[in-house]
Design a protein around this nucleic acid. Structure first.
Length: 422
RNA sequence: GCGAGCGUAGCUCAGCUGGUUAGAGCACUAGACUGUGGAUCUAGGGGUCACGGGUUCAAGUCCCGUCGCUCGCCCCA
């Protein structure tokens, strides 16, 4: 078993699990389409430089979590740890500045070399949306409302909380950062070791510390809201007003921050208590300076990523497989006619399971196990009369139907009628 | 990367202070039942007790290492 284990932090998606994942992704794609987001896909790997530029040299993701390797041509390649970088790169290299405003939806696997935990894997999956080219708060409102809508569609919204904050524009943010560094530098000796490191690399992150000593200092620290300029305050107010009008409930959490300089204004997280330490289920923010930082012409951006595994774990009523129609040939002579009938019904859009072996009892038992809604029995008697026997497997009622009328008789068993939840 | 706990059949678990060929339930396969499923009964297949080493007359049980999972920390989706 040791050698046949999947690589640490990777997981097989067997049918039940894959169905849950698919349900999450399809619900998201579907709702996003209603909001006018077009689906795109970018490569699973990029030049390492793409992620270094977007994530910054000091983030944990870049310093220790990337799957990086050199390919046979000597290029430095990295398996994508998140989606935004690839989309930003595609935006620049594909000349999409002509298409603004651009609204895209994407999903797929991500890779981070982390210590696995519940809801945290080395290969995991995300859904992702981005709006490029809209500096107005309307984009923030739309993107957050879309997230809430998807969570609602999945039935998990009641188990989440939306936390919201603003980092302000570049000016406000720089002013606050300065005040914060000054304050914590004065109290450097009392900071935890982790937070002393943060002070050098990522001072805003100290606000997020769980260390009790840090928490005491944080209480008296300068507040972000006191350093917002008028424009930033108005922007945040507009976002909140929009959410209120849409009935998207949220709480302001001033300690919710993003470390890197190209993040601006809105930061948000839908979190849950249900997944232990990995509470963030869908999170994002505004990154008006990112495209510029990557070498493109300045373009506003906002988006979020949602964790498919985490969302799938929160589903309360998991999707079920479509109920097939079980075709049951009775006797040797019925085998080929049944094969032909299965082919025709499938062509007509029915979900049909034709057993492989066994007598009628065995086949019905198998049909039952598959959750078949009905069985179509075809034997010598039926062949002689040009008919089939249709048995409703829920009620046990059964009747003979002429072959010519079969499609109509089966109409109510057409997949994907959902089976009752187990 | 740091700290702690846990690995016995596909799943959930039992297996006493080390002591014969490692068990149960569920699931699976087959038969009772070659024109009628869900139930019942009977039989069967499945395990290098995560992997490797050590202690011992004897290891699923004790010790060490490795791998994996879980829970915190860190970070995040």
């Amino acid at each position: 078993m040791a050698t046949l284990q999947p690589v640490r932090g990777t997981h097989d998606l067997l049918p039940d699990e894959q169905r849950r994942h698919r349900h999450v992704v399809e619900a998201a794609r579907d709702v996003a389409a209603r909001y006018g987001f077009a689906e795109i896909a970018t490569p699973i790997f990029e030049f390492t430089e793409v992620f270094k530029r977007t994530l910054g040299d000091t983030s944990d993701i870049v310093t220790k979590e990337m799957y990086t390797f050199r390919d046979r041509g000597g290029e430095e390649i990295t398996l994508r740890p998140e989606y935004t970088a690839g989309i930003a790169r595609a935006f620049i290299s594909g000349g999409l500045a002509q298409e603004l405003p651009l609204k895209v939806f994407a999903s797929g696997p991500m890779f981070r070399y982390e210590r696995p935990q519940k809801g945290r894997l080395r290969q995991f999956h995300q859904i992702d949306v981005e709006i490029l080219g809209v500096p107005e708060p309307q984009a923030d409102i739309e993107v957050i409302a879309l997230g809430a809508h998807i969570l609602g569609e999945l039935g998990v919204l009641p188990r989440t909380t939306l936390e919201l904050n603003t980092l302000g524009d570049g000016e406000s943010r720089a002013a606050y950062r300065e005040a914060l560094v000054a304050y914590f530098s004065d109290h450097r000796a009392r900071l935890s070791e982790d937070s002393r490191a943060r002070l050098e690399r990522n001072p805003l992150r100290i606000l997020d510390s769980k260390d009790p000593g840090d928490r005491a200092l944080i209480g008296a620290a300068p507040r972000l809201s006191e350093h917002l300029n008028a424009a930033s305050t108005a922007f945040f107010a507009a976002v909140r007003e929009g959410l209120d009008i849409l009935g998207v409930r949220h709480t302001v959490n001033e300690r919710l921050v993003r470390g890197l300089d190209y993040y601006t204004h809105t930061a948000f997280e839908f979190t849950t208590e249900a997944l232990g330490a990995q509470g963030a289920v869908l999170a994002g923010g505004r990154y008006d300076k990112l495209i510029e930082a990557m070498g493109g012409t300045p373009t506003a951006g906002i988006g979020w990523a949602g964790g498919v595994e985490r969302l799938a774990m929160l589903l309360t009523d998991p999707p079920v497989a479509p109920r097939p129609i079980a075709l049951v040939p009775v006797g040797e002579a019925a085998q080929l006619p049944a094969l032909r009938l299965a082919h025709e019904l499938r062509g007509a859009g029915f979900c049909v399971e034709l057993g492989y072996r066994g007598n009628i009892g065995r086949r019905l038992k198998r049909a039952d196990k598959l959750g078949a809604a009905c069985a179509v029995l075809i034997g010598e008697d039926e062949l002689a009369r040009g008919a089939i026997t249709l048995r409703d497997l829920d009620t046990g009622a059964q009747r003979e139907v002429a072959l010519a009328d079969i499609a109509a008789a089966l109409a109510r068993f057409r997949a994907p009628a959902a089976a009752p939840a187990p």
